[in-house]
Amino acid sequence: MKTLNPILVLIILLSIGNFSFGQKDLSIYSDIDAVFVKSYWGNINVVGIDASNQDIFDLEAVYTDTLKKSKNLRQLSDYVSFKVENRKLYIETREPKGFESIDLNLKMPADLFLEIKLEKGGNIFADNMKNGVEINILNGSVNLERIGKYALVNAANGEIVANFDTLDEGMPISLVTMNGGVNATLPDNSKRDLRLISRKNGFVLSDFDLLSDEKIINLNVRQYSKKPIINTARINGGGALLFLSTENGPISIKKNRS
């Protein structure tokens, strides 16, 4: 069988895609407590790696240029910067030149605190981060899986889905969006004081018994309410705050039965 010419392969690869990627090993940053990721356009995926595999700490960046010009990311450092200050690793993409997006795929120790700021647009997915997350995003959804300790999430246009498995019961959770639903899944023994705000097109679904002095409109009725739903309530006797707020969309509080 005739072997392919390597130059031909390279030309084919360059002509197919208008993206390229680069990778960086971050295991040199062993003495940090937190990671802060700031980006403009592009998806951010973060996976927390448990202590038994803590030598896995790396970042993959995938660059996409919508002007149909492919660009090879020979130097990741031209697009993404890294610095450590006060035991916090800052990973920041460059300010976009025209429309460009950089997807970031980060694998990091699960016991580090994670903060993300996505200035323009993209979706955020984070899994197995056990020491709390704080996220600020403009356009796009936030999907959090197997989160520990606490989360503060703020979005403008996009839904928030957050699944917690090991909460710090003294820490508040706050999930706020403008357009989109808010879904929180908590361990079934969680004790929380709830603040629920859904100003329009909302309803509230809850696996938990909600103890409230006031009637909660459209509770466990999948019917969009014209009236604002603004309530305080308690689950399992009450505890730290669970603040769920959306201008436009439903709210769901589920039990994590795993």
């Binding site: 062993s30 003495d31 940090i32 407590d33 202590a51 035991r87 120790p109 016991d111 020491n131």
Partner: peptide, 10 residues
């Protein structure tokens, strides 16, 4: 207490 990371403590 030791002013080190959780991992370093372990």
């Amino acid at each position: 207490s030791e002013n080190i990371s959780v991992n370093n403590a372990r």
